[in-house]
Design a protein around this nucleic acid. Structure first.
Length: 577
DNA sequence: GCCGTTTTCGGCCCGACTGTTTTCAGTCG
């Protein structure tokens, strides 16, 4: 059992306890522990074996005992008893919008409802309206909520969300009563996937903005609307939440709406320690005065810390670091100088080597590695050894044609076969300027097997970089169940770099392991894995993972001068021969 | 249930919005 699964179980316990009626602080403690486990980059087994469980924030005596029981027996008596008391199927009722723990308990205890379908039937039969605190409107909301749940496509990719957000922000900015419109929420923090779009607006005529927003032709339904915020569902199924404040309070609003929730809670707890109270309206000082903030910087500065980049606002130590003025100088997109992973018509790309090189150059890329697939990946039309050698001639020819405006090197994305061997023999790998090894198949192998495959590749002296290490694909394919401690240790030992694949459907390594890797001294590479010219634009998504991982430019190879990258690759090759 | 340069006990983020209420509870972010 890994920490993600443990986190899911503790969330489950929190939900069930809440329905049962446990005091809020107990359930909050379980949620805090779950969140902490999700952000843990270390292997929980190792933490357990070294007796360090209670050093994890939010995990004390009681929860650490439960973790021990789960890790040693695979079961948890406490949860089993709880599930006897509270029907677990109530968790699907809890997912219905506007149904929280109190309502779920009400439906269960007073109407015998324990499933979502049961809830739907009861609502259709008009049996909910007579329950205490319920009425016809609440009953209708529940039916609408169940319907929404069924048509909602779940979370959106970062790319989908940003494309939509840009259109809406442009539209909002075109309104005469809007002074400022900005992205907020998980979008602005560049989380891997996005639920709702959160947008914030500064305006002195909030009523006009609200009116225009809720009457936009793309709006299917207005879910809620007040003076300061509105929530709508679009015809596309996406939801948008809009927050409004006058310009002199915009900083407080933007800070609040950006989150994360855990970051805000931590920040507000800190504010209390300092004798003030923080909210989306401003800072309530000890003397009773309200300090309103026009900018986010004012909010953080007032609390005695530097402004925190949104990507870091996940309650992973950023507030302490900001107080001590030791936040990293995060990598920026425009610092990218090299692209080390792309495909051409030689395998499954859609452009020739020359076309890719020209487009890369236009994007400011000064070094481009052509890394087509090896033969083993049948679907991608991978290169045999003979074709690989032919390709070198074409790369040289294009290099000659383009002169010193861009440096081209030859690499390959070498398949790690299901038996752990590599797709090219060592003497062929040795001829390459850069060798990337990637997993594409047999990702469902048991942890020890799939981990060993990756470690074999890392141990090969000719491999420089591991491509999209876990192999995950949003939204469908889970990554391999890797033993990350083993993988990262092998990478450190061999000086092999790990890729942060920038495709919004991969984002692999993720932020948590990228941060851990960098802390261990492993080099990272942010690559787009481009198959066409448009894919070069995806770099921003990869950079967002790097920023969420607290990375500086120096830790990411792609920001290095071409000459430095070549020296690094050269030194690796020399060491191995 | 967790946690502590104001506490090992007594706290635990804060406000907007909705519906059923007539002053508030529940949900959400």
């Amino acid at each position: 059992m890994n920490q993600q699964e443990l986190a899911d179980l503790f969330e489950r316990i929190a939900d069930l306890l809440e329905i049962k009626g446990e005091v809020i602080y107990v359930t909050r403690a379980y949620r805090r522990a779950a969140e902490s486990l999700r952000g843990l980059a270390e292997d929980i087994q190792v933490v357990h074996l070294e007796g360090r469980l209670t050093s994890i924030p939010g995990i004390g005596k009681a929860i650490s005992e439960k973790i021990k029981e789960l890790l040693t027996t695979g079961r948890l008596t406490f949860l089993e008893k709880l599930e006897d008391e509270v029907p677990p199927s109530l968790l699907e009722v809890l997912q219905v919008p506007d149904v929280g723990p109190r309502k779920a308990a009400l439906f269960w205890k007073q109407a015998g409802i324990i499933t979502r379908e049961g809830l739907r039937q009861a609502a259709l039969a008009g049996k909910l309206r007579n329950l205490p605190g319920m009425g016809e409107k609440s009953e209708a909301r529940i039916l609408a909520g169940i319907a929404a749940l069924e048509r909602m496509g779940g979370r959106h990719s970062l790319e989908t969300a940003w494309k939509s957000a840009h259109i809406w922000l442009e539209w909002l900015r075109s309104l005469p009563s809007v002074q400022q419109a900005q992205p907020a929420g998980s979008l602005r923090r560049w989380k891997e996937t996005i639920g709702d779009l959160d947008l914030v607006v500064a305006s002195n005529e909030p009523g006009q903005v609200m009116q225009a927003f809720t009457h936009h032709p793309d709006v299917l339904e207005v879910k809620g609307q007040g003076e300061y915020k509105a929530s709508v569902e679009l015809r596309s199924g996406m939801r948008i939440q809009l927050w409004l404040q006058p310009p002199h309070r915009f900083g407080s609003l933007w800070q609040y709406a950006t989150g994360s929730k855990h970051h805000n809670i931590r920040l507000r707890e800190y504010a209390i320690q300092k004798g003030c109270s923080l909210s989306e309206r401003g800072i309530l000082l000890a003397n009773g005065e309200y300090h309103e903030c026009e900018t986010e910087e004012e909010v953080y500065h007032h609390l005695g810390m530097v402004w925190i980049p949104p990507e870091l606002r996940e309650d992973r130590g950023e507030i302490q670091a900001a107080l001590e003025n030791r936040l990293p100088a995060l990598i920026e997109t425009q610092q990218r100088q090299a692209e080390l992973h792309c495909h051409t018509t030689w395998s499954d790309g859609i452009l020739s080597i020359e076309e890719m090189a020209r487009f890369a150059r236009a994007k400011g890329i000064r070094l481009l590695a052509i890394t087509d697939h090896s033969a083993g990946l049948g679907v991608a039309g991978g290169l045999t050894v003979d074709r690989l050698r032919d390709q070198r001639a074409e790369i040289n020819a294009v290099q000659q044609k383009l002169g010193d405006t861009i440096q081209l090197i030859q690499g390959a994305e070498v398949e790690i076969r299901s038996d752990g061997s590599l797709d090219y023999p060592n003497e062929v790998l040795a001829e390459l300027d850069i060798a990337i090894a990637s997993l594409h198949s047999s990702l469902k192998q048991p942890r020890e097997v799939v981990t060993q495959r990756l470690v074999n590749a890392i141990n090969n002296p000719h491999i420089d970089l591991i491509g999209h290490p876990s192999g995950r694909l949003f939204p469908r394919r889970e990554g391999a169940d890797l033993d990350w401690d083993t993988v990262l240790s092998a990478a450190v030992k061999n000086g092999v770099a790990l890729e942060i694949n920038a495709s919004p459907y991969r984002l692999d390594l993720n932020d948590i392991y990228a941060r851990r890797a960098a802390e261990m001294g492993i080099l990272l590479a942010v690559n787009t894995d481009a198959h066409s010219q448009l894919d070069f634009e995806l770099v921003r998504y990869g950079i967002s993972v790097a920023r969420r991982a607290w990375l500086t430019a120096g830790q990411v190879i792609n920001t290095w001068q071409p000459q430095r990258i070549l020296s690094w690759l050269h030194s690796r090759n020399k060491n191995s021969t």
